[in-house]
């Protein structure tokens, strides 16, 4: 793997410039808001060399609002992920809209198990940004870590000036492959190499992305009590245009602690071979009436 020390080489490589221009071009042809958002990325990028100048993101944070990935398009507006008939409206192409509709049907039939229900895997990025439990944003000069109680999981964002590794060194992982840079107190990072549909979801309405997804996140502390993540999602396999999602996180009281959410500790809701979620009694026997076998 090639490590690049010069930030000018890493951040403004030819590939990145082309990608940036392509993104700006899309934005100009789209909503003015998105264009303004992306243009603001043209400021001077920074690489931190010491803890001096590191923004204060200390503390424990929790997402504001329900675990719906894109609340701006939620229908019905008061809907909750996992309830029947609830959906969002990402700019899916026809094939992925059909996939989403099929997932919505499975949710209604109680046959859309959350991958987390199997108690073996991470939530995966970008669902990391849409979890019910608490998070920490740990800033070091050369990396930023997003630590989540759910999973528990770690997303590492390299900010030491490196680029993404070559394509043949990337394979789909839960946290994906993230590199970032600083613009003042805003961290801008790009994530590729995510697991995608089949192994991860974005929320329990049934939203998914493909392994081709590229997520550009602007993360900053907007005020003393609020962190904000603006995500611009590109996915040439699933989306017809960029999808912009904003999430906010409130700061829990000083002194708050993070806890394990170690799902395998005492999972009394296993999923059977049909995708049905079962309920066990204290001895591990299936409580559900008429169900005796097929527990995974």
């Amino acid at each position: 793997m090639k490590y690049v020390d010069s930030r000018s080489e890493a951040v403004w490589s030819q590939e990145n410039i082309i990608r940036f221009l392509r993104t700006v071009q899309k934005a100009i042809s789209g909503a003015g808001l998105i264009a303004a958002f992306l243009f603001s990325q043209a400021g001077s990028a920074q690489q931190l060399s010491s803890f001096e100048g590191v923004p204060d993101w200390t503390g424990v944070w929790q997402m504001i609002g329900p675990t719906v990935f894109d609340r701006s398009t939620l229908q019905p507006p008061e809907g909750r992920a996992g309830r029947h008939g609830v959906r969002e409206f990402p700019p899916y192409n026809d094939v992925w809209e059909q996939k989403y509709l099929a997932n919505i049907e499975r949710v209604s039939a109680d046959r859309f198990p959350d991958p987390l229900s199997f108690c073996g895997t991470f939530p995966g990025f970008p669902r990391t940004m849409n979890l019910p439990g608490a998070l920490e944003f740990v800033v070091r000069p050369e990396q930023v870590w997003i630590l989540t109680e759910d999973g528990p999981s770690i997303t590492r964002i390299y900010t030491d000036g490196r680029s993404h590794p070559p394509q043949d060194e990337i394979w789909p992982t839960y946290s994906g492959e993230s590199v970032g840079r600083w613009e003042g107190d805003t961290l801008i990072f790009e994530t590729i190499g995510i697991k995608g549909a089949g192994e991860t979801i974005l929320d329990r309405t049934g939203l998914t992305l493909s392994q081709q997804a590229r997520i550009t996140t602007r993360l900053r502390r907007v005020d003393a009590g609020t962190m904000e993540a603006q995500m611009v999602i590109e996915d040439p396999e699933a989306l017809t245009e960029t999808w912009m999602v904003t999430k906010q996180y409130g700061r829990l009281p000083d002194g708050s602690r993070m806890f394990d959410v170690a799902c395998a500790e005492n999972n009394r809701n296993p999923v059977d071979a049909t995708g049905r979620t079962l309920t066990l009694d204290a001895e591990g026997n299936v409580l559900d009436v008429g169900v005796n076998t097929g527990v995974q």
Partner: peptide, 12 residues
């Protein structure tokens, strides 16, 4: 309420 459904379907 919502936290019961944080990890799995609550449709049972």
């Amino acid at each position: 309420c919502f936290s019961v459904a944080a990890h799995h379907s609550g449709n049972m």
